[in-house]
């Protein structure tokens, strides 16, 4: 069983308590109506999908309920670190 460290619970918890929330640190444009269609499409749909180190959102849905961010290696599935939402990217 893969264990994920929840930065709110401050515990390693089983993977099945979590859901993945996609790529992290995507800021919603402050003024969407001034965005070009291309930029808006980029915000909505275009993701990095890297091979290796990936910043992503996770939610401890069957635990404390909180969203947080994680750095996970998409090849090895190893979690490098997790940190609270709102903290700068690691």
């Amino acid at each position: 069983m893969l264990l994920i460290h929840c930065p709110y619970c401050e515990e390693d918890r089983p993977e099945v308590e979590f859901v993945n929330g996609g790529q992290a640190h995507i800021a919603r444009p402050a003024d969407p109506s001034s965005e070009s269609d291309a930029d808006w499409e980029k915000y909505l749909y275009i993701r990095r999908n890297p091979r290796g180190r990936h910043h992503e959102r996770w939610r401890h849905i069957h635990g404390c309920g909180r969203f947080f961010n994680a750095v996970r290696d998409t090849v090895s599935d190893r979690f490098e670190t997790t940190y609270k939402a709102g903290e700068p990217a690691k």
Partner: peptide
């Protein structure tokens, strides 16, 4: 989170 006092359990940071 996880502590219980007199029947009240802390489930999350604000819950």
């Amino acid at each position: 989170i996880g502590d219980v006092v007199d029947g009240i359990a802390c489930l999350g940071p604000d819950e």
